[in-house]
Design a protein around this nucleic acid. Structure first.
Ligand SMILES: [Mn+2]
Ligand SMILES: [Mn+2]
Ligand SMILES: [Mn+2]
Ligand SMILES: [Mn+2]
Lengths: 231, 231
DNA sequence: AATTAAATTTAGACAAAACTAAAAATAGAT
DNA sequence: ATCTATTTTTAGTTTTGTCTAAATTTAATT
């Protein structure tokens, strides 16, 4: 009885901390068999490199990451699968909070960080169904399907669009609370139509048409907004 | 910074384990300044008495329980308040799962055990609103209000009702999965009308009318079903 | 009142997840 | 190729929550 639980725990059950590490490694690109350094992971997670080393060993033991001393970690197939299932939960909960509970897009991340660790396959599948199987979360990020398929959208940073090009705002690169609140205040939202009117060479700021109205936008903003170009 | 966090953690932030202890103590009657023994708590939580002793000290330090060596623990006002907020969350999530996601009443407890620890006041208030401020959970247990008010229903065990008395089934005493599944199989549900027809002295079984149909019920079942008597 | 049984606490250990400080390995620059 | 700065790992601690085994207190019985 005790031995069986120790076995399950060691090789199958995921702790919250382990899940957070997998998610971070995935977001840093470790899903494409690219090696991520312990330092990079530590910085992202606001923890210490030595803690990351400890966890790397544990995750390697579970077959979730490839870890070679001094060479960093990458996700195994199993690790990718697990990371995607957590990201799927995170983004579905974010949609739920916005669509069903009237949260604003700057409030959802913090709560989703907790909800993503709830263990119930039925729960998340039912939430998915309730939301009518959404493809994107409130920040425009794609939601992996139940079987881990990922549909990245064809999008471009607004700052990289040519003059006179038109499109629709579909996502944010920076999804920090201050940036999202800034966009709200300036009435910039996902789904808005955009046309690039002019670029200012001096400071790289843009003059754009947003839902018909002409506004000026700094480079900082333009380089954090994703646009889907019209054909 | 570090000192501030240590301070917050020690005196304000609740861990999942601490929350589970408070909830258990409350369910064992520790809210009415009755002393609950460490043994009773240990048995309920499937843990060891020595672990309970450790936690009792920690909760006392936080001002959540009164703890006197060898005398057991009872909840302080602050402890009751905290316990009620967790029970409120647990029961609201149970309603949510049944009402919005089509879970059956025997599936919700396990998931609610996880969801009750999500920390977001806004989240639970919005869930409450979405559900239209329900007063009872799927097992007939009352849901505390935001400010901790408790409306226990006037109910009686079916086994204690007099012959010819009528009422409505409003709750279960045993809310274990097997019992709930048994009730489903026998088409006994909350809201059903009940009339006691006859009692068998030999084995204390009952003959009752359930939604018009006459059925026979063992004492074991009758002593785990709550009925609200008609006036 | 003394003895015994049961309940409770203490002491010491362990696993998980973090930390600090020191040691080792790698990469960059001469 | 050697030295040096940076990165990474190791070793040893800490905190939380648990456990076992031993000691202590309380309750029950004679
Ligand atoms: Mn998020
Ligand atoms: Mn998001
Ligand atoms: Mn429950
Ligand atoms: Mn319930």
């Amino acid at each position: 009885m005790l031995n069986k639980n120790v076995f399950l725990k060691k090789y199958f059950l995921m702790t919250r901390s382990e899940e957070n590490y997998l998610k971070t490694i995935f977001h840093l690109g470790g899903g494409d068999s690219k090696s991520i350094t312990t330092n990079a992971i530590a910085e992202q997670m606001e923890t210490k490199p030595s803690s990351v080393t400890d966890m790397a060993k544990k995750l390697a033991e579970k077959g979730l990451v490839n870890y070679v001393k001094y060479q960093g970690v990458s996700l195994t197939n199993s690790g990718v699968k697990t990371a995607l299932s957590i990201i799927r939960k995170h983004r579905l909960w974010e949609v739920f909070l916005v669509e069903k509970l009237d949260f604003s897009w700057d409030e959802v991340h913090e709560v989703a960080e907790q909800l993503e660790h709830i263990k119930s396959e039925k729960l998340i599948d039912k939430i998915d169904e309730l939301l009518n199987f959404p493809k994107y979360d409130p920040h425009g990020d794609p939601i992996p399907t139940k079987d881990g398929k990922f549909q990245e959208r064809d999008k471009k940073l607004l700052s990289e669009m040519a003059i006179n090009a038109t499109g629709v705002c579909v996502g944010v690169k920076d999804s920090s609370v201050p940036f999202l609140k800034f966009l709200d205040k300036n009435k910039i939202a996902l789904g808005n139509s955009i046309k690039v009117l002019d670029k200012e060479d001096f400071d790289n700021s843009l003059r754009i048409q947003l839902e018909g109205k002409e506004i000026r936008i700094s480079h900082q903003i333009a380089s954090n907004l994703y646009v889907k170009k019209n054909d």
